[in-house]
Design a protein around this nucleic acid. Structure first.
Lengths: 205, 205, 205, 205
DNA sequence: AATGAATGAGTATTCATTCAT
DNA sequence: GATGAATGAATACTCATTCAT
């Protein structure tokens, strides 16, 4: 990588980190581009060489952070499977959801940032992002999980969509406002609902 | 009601109608208080005699419109039951959800307005609003439905919350963006998921 | 006039005076609305209660200043006619042009302001502005001049247009840049051209 | 011409053509140097190796386009004189003006571009530009015309200035805004005014 | 000669809210 | 209760120009 290229990457990384910090601290609307640029140590105009506008950098951050959550959960699952070898498909999905919910429960600014600005369109990007070139994306991992456990699912894409929406919208209210019940009160019902949804998509002979 | 009282009510109604029209046409953010007041035929300062700010009137409108949806669905259900007498609890919930989804599918500005600005806190108000003094609110109707059908539900409040969140967030994406599938493709899976959620809350001996 | 009305008029006048001062000193482009407002002693937002934008106040000023020039010249002509009673139509037009040219020659910022921003559309407004209600506008004065001197003119409107454009565009270059000749060198040729144009529009039997 | 020289000329020509296209399409103010450079296929910094700034390239374009108009008109006149041998000086000037007015009437973007940005200083350059080395410039052609027809003119430079200013400013309003009359309505009066101006400059014994 | 990354000055406009009348 | 004049904070985005490579 040339000197200029490396310099550019450094600027972009600096902008992303600064923006994430400000967005989660003050919220997206209350953060101005002038502020991001200043804190990142670059000129205002330079911002526009790297991102189209505030919503461009926001969307890239959401995809990135969501992807990190999935990667993190997938890795934890792999580790867990080393000692628990007979996990069903349902068990594994619940494990992943539980792992992500726990992270979001500890990191509420991240929860606020992701949920308040989420749309399925942006989310799909996160599913398909690869961390490194020899890695697989989460969607592929999901299908691999299905085939490994031997389960047969009708419309796995819709099932994934439904679970994702259910988890993200219920957790948002439950964790942040404890409405209508706190996250610990919600968990058992959330998990049993997820299992029920999976069952309703399962093809049995 | 005195003449003055009636005059006040008329102004408030005018403001609510005008705001609803503008919010659904231009969006909440692009609508100013000056615009609402002018179009409602009153002075800008007068707005503040009736509502705290733009978000106050917005929340009142969401509650009001959500409540109308429930009332509408409940009435349709009553009528339907006249000719279909053996509907189970599940059937009736699915009927209500289907009715609401159909309305929102035809009225996308209403869907955008409600979903984009929804939070469970505001929604709860809608559940508890009574249309007239001798009427019952939707929450009561829900519990009445449970007792009438003789079903036993664990934590009915949480179940209602879960169904509501699942329906509203999946329909938003499905109706407006046809992502990951259009509403007609979603419906069977949505309904079976709802039935599955209800079953997972049902107490069986 | 009520207290509020008088207050509003005072603010508007203050804005017009301040804007004229800044426009002629720094130019229209280099003058910001913030500057006009501040110097006029009012808040920035208040500017927009009185004028649509910078070009609105500029156009109003051009019309106003052009009109003052014509009024001024017309008055001087009236006075001059008291002692010179046999002035022909040509003589009177040349007198008016000469009077205006002399003023612009002494007040070059005014010349720059008017000429640089002139369009016939705005100019026409100036012709039709009345200073007071019982006054006549310049266009009427022009036609009165024609009928008083008994001259017959083909298309007087076009003739006026042609003379106005010739005078304003030649004077701009001549007074400000002395190109291709200074105003004193230009005058005899300008006047004889004006007389020639009038003659070419004159109807003779 | 060396290879490098030819390469430089090619870049300059490309810049001029691109700038002319953009200036007449979007206007000078709305066109940025970045845009010109990009569309011309060169780097932004390279622009400054050929032109001082945007106004430099604009002025060169005006001179160039004005000169083309004159050359075009002069050639048409030469051709016309082959079959009409007894044209007076007046006739020939009117012919040239008429020819130019017709071109501008058909090409209004060119009219807007030239008129909106015209000053006598830039215009003079156009008069003195030679198309090729063994050619004569328009000013020389003008004096040649005077001597050929045997007419004697007082201050021919001022006369030319006056005619040019009259034509350009009246045509701008007449063609673009049809104010106070369209170009066809203006022409007879414009031509008779030009003849009148010439006569007033003519020296007769 | 050519590049293009970086700079940072510069500005119009909207709008919620108040308060004197 | 009602009015509407006044306020002034707050912010995105462009673009000419430079200069290290």
């Amino acid at each position: 990588m040339g000197k200029i290229e490396s310099n550019k990457l450094q600027k972009q990384t600096s902008l992303l980190n600064t923006a994430f910090h400000l967005f989660t601290t003050k919220g997206v609307n209350k953060t101005s581009i002038a502020e991001i640029s200043k804190e990142a140590g670059i000129a205002k105009g330079t911002f526009y060489l790297y991102f189209k506008d505030k919503y461009d950098i926001r969307n890239k951050l959401i995809s990135h952070e969501s992807n990190k959550l999935f990667q993190n959960a997938a890795e934890a699952l792999e580790k867990y499977k080393e000692t628990h070898q007979t996990l069903s498909f349902e068990d594994q999905i619940v494990f992943i959801v539980g792992h992500i919910v726990n992270i979001l429960n500890k990191n509420r600014t991240l929860l606020t940032f992701i949920s308040k600005n989420l749309s399925w369109g942006i989310f799909k990007e996160a599913l398909e992002m690869k961390t490194s070139d020899d890695d697989i994306d989460f969607r592929q991992a999901f299908y691999k999980l299905i085939s490994q456990t031997g389960i047969r699912i009708r419309e796995p894409e819709i099932m994934l969509f439904m679970i994702t929406e259910l988890v993200s919208s219920t957790c948002y209210n439950s964790i942040l406002f404890e409405e209508p019940v706190g996250i610990d009160g919600l968990k058992p019902y959330l998990y049993s609902s997820i299992r029920a949804i999976i069952k309703s998509h399962e093809i049995t002979d």
